[in-house]
């Protein structure tokens, strides 16, 4: 029996909220589990390409005009495999491949300069408090429109201490656990080491090269990530609640260029479902999402 047949067999309006939830979970269950090989290969390939840019660019074998867009793409692609690890999708603690989960989690976001534990703890806070003005560390991307988001984000990043960084630091401080304190210290260490590397290479005569493979890509890629991974799937970010704090949307850029975020509503409902199964799960669950009043903008 196909999944869609399972949904259509029921007249959803006749089901109680609990029955609807049970049906939703039974369908979602079919898309859970398994090793997300795609994300693992993605993580290591992307990191290998970014690392290879260093000798190629510093030796002059690869021109800066080619290195900068490749590095920007690497930065954009570096977050999501770590995101899979943050949710323990590759393996949970105590499982045989948990080490692989942690390796992907730590190594994948290196081009972005984001330490894994800080990303994981603040991202859990985002899930727990999505769209909460005080408690959601990602709420700063909330804007009236796409253009407003871009302009507002550039304005924020031009501050010497961007509001996004302050929100992450505040979230870790609020948590107050030993893990959070360690994550905060690692966040600080990452920033200092990154700057030390930039200064060292720049004064050694490679300022343009590190600007092309680290500095500019993080500015442009960071904006792209915040736009498609934070603003777009939560817009207008006014409501809270399981079926209200995230939306489905159709982008003219399609699913690949939006990095699967058109179906982000599925991720907030089932955070441990692998990213690459979101489109199929969305199609199977769509009637239930409609019955729940989820915002599905054109998808």
């Amino acid at each position: 029996m196909s999944v869609s047949a399972t949904v259509h067999e029921h007249d959803l309006s006749e089901l109680s909220s609990q029955q609807l939830l049970r049906l939703e979970r039974s369908i979602a269950e079919q898309f859970m589990g398994g090793l997300p090989w795609g994300s693992i290969v993605w993580a290591f390939t992307n990191l290998a390409v970014w690392l290879s840019l260093w000798p190629l660019t510093l030796s002059g074998a690869l021109p800066l005009w080619a290195a900068a867009p490749i590095a920007t793409l690497n930065v954009i692609l570096s977050y999501l495999p770590s995101h899979e690890a943050q949710h323990r999708i590759i393996a949970r603690e105590g499982e045989r491949l948990f080490w692989l989960n942690e390796v992907v989690g730590h190594l994948s976001p290196v081009p972005l300069g984001l330490p894994y534990q800080a990303a994981r703890l603040t991202h859990y806070e985002h899930h727990k408090h999505a769209n909460d003005l005080e408690l959601d560390p990602d709420i700063n991307t909330r804007s009236d429109s796409a253009w407003h988001m871009v302009v507002k984000d550039i304005g924020m990043q031009l501050r010497t201490v961007p509001k996004t960084n302050i929100a992450y630091a505040n979230a870790l401080e609020r948590l107050g656990t030993e893990d959070a304190r360690r994550a905060g210290a690692t966040l600080l260490a990452y920033a200092l080491v990154t700057n030390a590397l930039l200064f060292g290479f720049a004064w050694a005569g490679y300022a343009l090269e590190v600007a092309a493979i680290v500095w500019l890509p993080r500015i442009v890629g960071g904006l792209y990530i915040r736009f498609f991974l934070s603003w777009a799937p939560h817009h207008p970010a006014l409501a809270v609640g399981r079926y209200r704090d995230t939306r489905g949307f159709r982008s003219r850029l399609g699913n690949i260029l939006t990095m699967g975020m058109q179906y982000h509503v599925i991720h907030h409902l089932y955070p441990r479902m692998p990213l690459m199964r979101h489109p199929a799960a969305f199609r199977a669950l769509r009637p239930i999402l409609v019955a729940r009043g989820c915002r599905l903008d054109g998808i």
């Binding site: 010497t160 930039l198 720049a202 004064w203 300022a207 343009l208």
Partner: peptide, 25 residues
């Protein structure tokens, strides 16, 4: 020391990165 370092980071970044970047440009 860390607080001092962070408070002065924009100036340090200006000298540490923007200066050699401008020179190379």
């Amino acid at each position: 020391l860390l607080t001092l370092l962070l408070q002065g980071m924009p100036l340090i970044f200006g000298i540490g990165f923007i200066a050699p970047l401008m020179t190379q440009l």
